[in-house]
Design a protein around this nucleic acid. Structure first.
Length: 209
DNA sequence: GGAGCGATGTCCT
DNA sequence: GGACATCGCTCCG
């Protein structure tokens, strides 16, 4: 086997729970450029976060937590740094992470990733032909859950700060150059609030890059 | 490339 | 019973 010149490995570390123990819009901004790591059997599927939305607690009519604590949204009221996965429109899952201290509701919706590793597996999971345009893999909240095989049954309430978790959020030395703020997408309540954050000029945002 | 729309399950009222 | 933090397909330009 050829010995290749291997550059120094990028420093990767898990985001600590304190990272999430803040207001959702602060966490949302900070999550841009971070990595979502999904451990499959023998393979890591990795994507970089390029688009997110903040959902606030009981004051936000568009948030699932607006109605108060229920069975469905309990994770949002729990401690920070846990995955909140819900099923929408009869077909798709959406991935969020809980924010704010235990007892306070809040979360960030992951809307789009730039695929980094495991693209062939992602294409299979998305039921796309081989070598699709990479934008088709993870640009959109429903798409990225399909590409990473994220479901409510398997991943809701998982601790994304645990080194042994099947779903983790990590950081490397990537730097975000610029951030664009817009209203949130696909909601009717509080639709004017600027709470969607995306990396400026990135080709993998779900729309309006 | 953009608007319109149907497919589909789960939760809350 | 209705709303829903979507997607991918039509049609039309």
């Amino acid at each position: 086997m050829l010995r290749t010149a291997r550059s120094s490995r990028k420093a990767i570390s898990i985001l600590p729970r304190s990272f999430y123990e803040r207001a959702p819009d602060i966490v949302a901004r900070a999550l841009l450029g971070k990595l979502v790591v999904r451990e499959m059997e023998g393979e890591s599927l990795i994507g970089r976060i390029v688009e997110v939305e903040a959902y606030f607690g009981k004051e936000d009519p568009a948030a699932h937590s607006y109605v108060g604590r229920t069975m469905r949204n309990a994770v949002l009221f729990g401690p920070p740094g846990f995955a909140y996965v819900y099923f929408i429109y009869g077909m798709y899952y959406c991935l969020n992470v809980s924010c704010e201290p235990d007892g306070e509701a809040g979360g960030v919706l992951i809307r789009a990733l730039e695929p980094i590793a495991g693209l062939a597996t992602m294409a299979k999971l998305r039921k796309l032909p081989p070598n699709p345009k990479p934008q088709m893999l993870t640009s959109g909240p429903g798409r990225l859950c399909q590409a990473l095989d994220i479901t409510r049954a398997a991943h809701n309430d998982l601790d994304v700060t645990s080194p042994t978790s099947l779903l983790r959020f990590e950081r490397d030395d990537y730097r975000v150059s610029g951030i664009v703020v817009t209203p949130r997408i696909g909601i009717r309540q509080a639709a004017e609030l600027p709470a969607r954050f995306l990396i400026e000029g990135n080709k993998f945002v779900s729309r309006g890059g």
